[in-house]
Write a protein that binds this DNA or RNA. Structure first.
Ligand code: MN
Ligand code: MN
Ligand code: ZN
Ligand code: ZN
Lengths: 144, 144
DNA sequence: TTAATTTTGCAACATAGTTGCTTTTAGATA
DNA sequence: TATCTAAAAGCAACTATGTTGCAAAATTAA
């Protein structure tokens, strides 16, 4: 219980550190991201919070977290938006995510492979690269 | 005019070759893909055909083309679905697209970089790779 | 030309996301 | 601790995107 309390205290501190006021929805949603190994969709968050928060609140919370560099979005081939926690290097306005994403076609979970950096790509002449998004699809280590 | 006629004749032949009946919407939409250097979204097709076809017809035509290996879909970070013509190697059921996609943040066009193959990725132990999707973002050669 | 089959268009529906406005809450201040 | 102000949440209404069932129209085969 002490650890649980300090956990929640840490979540509040984390929000304050990012210059966000500490509200129930922000605490709950951030907690979900911290406890979750994979990425979350808007619908997941709605369910996992027991539909306690309005849909709009969840949309706005995700938007805020994105802007503050707390989470990043992951594009998927079936065109659903997923979100996952950023590591240390992201900040307000600037996302520095150079890792690739892995979607397991068995368990449907999506993971940030933080240890696997995006590769160097040689583009044809005349193209200037700003950002590279790599999404791998296959079977994860739990489902293999 | 002879060339235009033969162009349309070729489009019909192309459809027949893929065992599809030749209809107005299929001809028009396929023509768009052939004449277009970049990728197309559902909304683009609706506009470029002068809203002549029902939304549902366009959805179903795209679905049919996907299944027949005529076009492939491209995931984007803003979560819109784009479609582009497949090259020779795709066929009914099986898409063999190993190229990367490039989104220009200036002109908003998306291109298939057919000459640029997806790189080899080394995944962490335990992950099995099936498919790799690489989307590059930056400035295209027309906008640089 | 006709008949069978496929495709289209329409209506109704479902889901995802946005916007304006009011009420509630958090954080600052007295 | 009580009060005030700014920010956030909730609500309703709306748009955009995509799906499904069915009747009408078009395509292909006979
Ligand atoms: Mn990630
Ligand atoms: Mn392509
Ligand atoms: Zn899995
Ligand atoms: Zn461009």
């Amino acid at each position: 219980m002490a650890s649980r309390l300090s956990h929640i205290a840490k979540i509040s501190d984390f929000l304050r550190k990012h210059k966000l006021s500490v509200t129930e929805s922000r605490k709950q949603i951030l907690k979900l991201f911290i406890e979750q190994p994979g990425a979350l969709a808007h619908a997941d968050i709605e369910k996992k919070t027991g539909e306690r928060f309005d849909r709009v609140t969840i949309y706005r919370t995700l938007q805020t977290f994105l802007e503050k560099g707390i989470i990043h979005s992951i594009p998927t081939s079936d065109n659903s938006v997923l979100y996952a926690l950023c590591k240390e290097n992201c900040s307000e306005g600037r996302h520095v995510d150079h890792h690739i994403h892995f979607i397991c076609t068995i368990c449907q979970n999506t993971y940030c492979l933080d240890e696997t950096n995006t590769p160097d790509i040689k583009l044809p002449k005349g193209y200037r690269l700003n950002r590279l998004e790599v999404v791998a699809e296959g079977t994860c280590k739990n489902c293999i």
